[in-house]
């Protein structure tokens, strides 16, 4: 278990003090994937760099499985660091070493014998799916393959935690998904806690259990990914969630504006489905009960999170007032979250 207790970090810069991290409290349970999302400069990197002592907190306390990080230094700190794997946006591989030699680096640091190193590194290369490329140099690999080497290297000393600082930000969407799948697989297989920093809500939704949203050094919202996606409270969270749930939202808005112009009397609503609701025939039930209402579907999407599906559907309903009110009642009865966008 990782605990941040009232952690703050202030940098002294030429323009005065800068509060990069401000009074953060977080608990990360064993074996979960914890996402930290926020825009550039929010303090995400600074926060996780305090986990392995690359930065020291100005105040507050960080506990990792009972060990207070602030009390560690010298040899103890280095030994603890061996148990905290980290992967980076720019991979940070040694270009003078082959894939296998890169993976052996942390094992050399830990002082394993030559034969143990070879054996362990070969297993890890296999685990991340790079068998056959052991003797390639990083310059011969694609971005996704380089990050696989990064993952193998981070896992070399059987870490208690894996930190991923924007590890997919330099990759294309498909390769991002491959690396995320790999992280999820490792998390499941080794029951390894992962702290995943990102500015893409997609990565959070795809593999994280919990998420914390950071803004200006503070955690402004946290909870299970499912709950935060379903019911984002802060403006910044809503922005992140909308980017992800509804990437075409600007297109949708254009269409919605058009519809409002052309059918000023119509009802425009957004439905949000959770979990098994997404699989129920809610719309057809509504059409069935209120045949006099005209229904057009404007946009719909569905996304899978670790806890279940979240669907979103934009509908236009045309008809008389009693019909429209009845339809809305029905939706309420079926516990579908409904947001009225326009009611003429």
């Amino acid at each position: 278990m990782i605990e941040f207790k009232e952690v703050s970090k202030t940098f002294a810069t030429k323009d005065g003090n800068l509060n990069a991290v401000n009074d953060v409290n977080l608990t990360i349970e064993d074996g979960e994937i914890y996402g930290i999302v926020g825009y550039s400069g929010a303090g995400k990197s600074t926060l996780v760099r305090m986990l392995n002592g690359l930065e020291t907190p100005t105040s507050g306390e960080i506990d990792i499985n009972g060990a207070k990080m602030s009390t560690l230094s010298g040899k103890e700190l280095r030994e603890k660091r061996q148990k905290i794997g980290m992967i980076f946006q720019h991979f940070n591989l040694l270009w003078s070493r082959t894939v296998l030699q890169n993976v052996m680096f942390p094992l050399e640091v830990a002082g394993l014998s030559r034969s143990e190193r070879r054996k362990k590194a070969a297993e890890l290369v296999k685990l991340v799916g790079l068998e056959g490329r052991e003797n390639a140099y990083p310059s011969e690999l694609s971005g996704g393959q380089k990050q696989r080497v990064g993952v193998a290297r981070a896992l070399a000393n059987d870490p208690e935690i894996l930190i991923s600082d924007e590890a997919t930000s330099a990759l294309d969407p498909q390769t991002t998904d491959e690396v995320l799948d790999l992280l999820l697989e490792i998390n499941k297989r080794l029951n390894l806690s992962i702290v995943l920093i990102t500015h893409e809500m997609h990565a959070i939704r795809k593999i994280c259990d919990h998420v914390a949203v950071m803004e200006d050094g503070q955690v402004v919202e946290q909870g299970t990914v499912f709950n935060v996606f379903r019911n984002p409270k802060q403006t910044i969270t809503k922005r992140f969630v909308n980017e992800e749930v509804d990437p075409a939202s600007s297109d949708t808005n254009v269409v919605l504006d058009d519809l409002i112009q052309n059918y000023p009397n119509g009802l425009l609503i957004q439905l949000v489905f959770h979990g098994d609701q997404a699989k129920l025939p809610i719309v057809s039930e509504m059409i069935h009960q209120f045949p006099e209402i005209q229904v057009s579907i404007i946009e719909g999407s569905i996304h899978q999170t670790q806890e279940g599906a979240i669907g979103s559907l934009y509908l236009q309903l045309l008809g008389d007032e009693t019909g429209l009110a009845g339809a809305q009642d029905l939706l309420k009865k079926m516990r579908v979250e409904t947001e009225v966008i326009h009611h003429g």
Binding site: Q82, M86, N92, W95, S96, V109
Partner: peptide, 24 residues
């Protein structure tokens, strides 16, 4: 970042010199 990665893996100054700075 490469030097920092080595630090994050728990490398000593000596290891950083001989395994990172010089070879790289």
């Amino acid at each position: 970042g490469v030097i920092e990665a080595a630090e994050a893996m728990g490398a000593t100054k000596r290891q950083i010199i001989f395994k990172v700075l010089l070879p790289e």
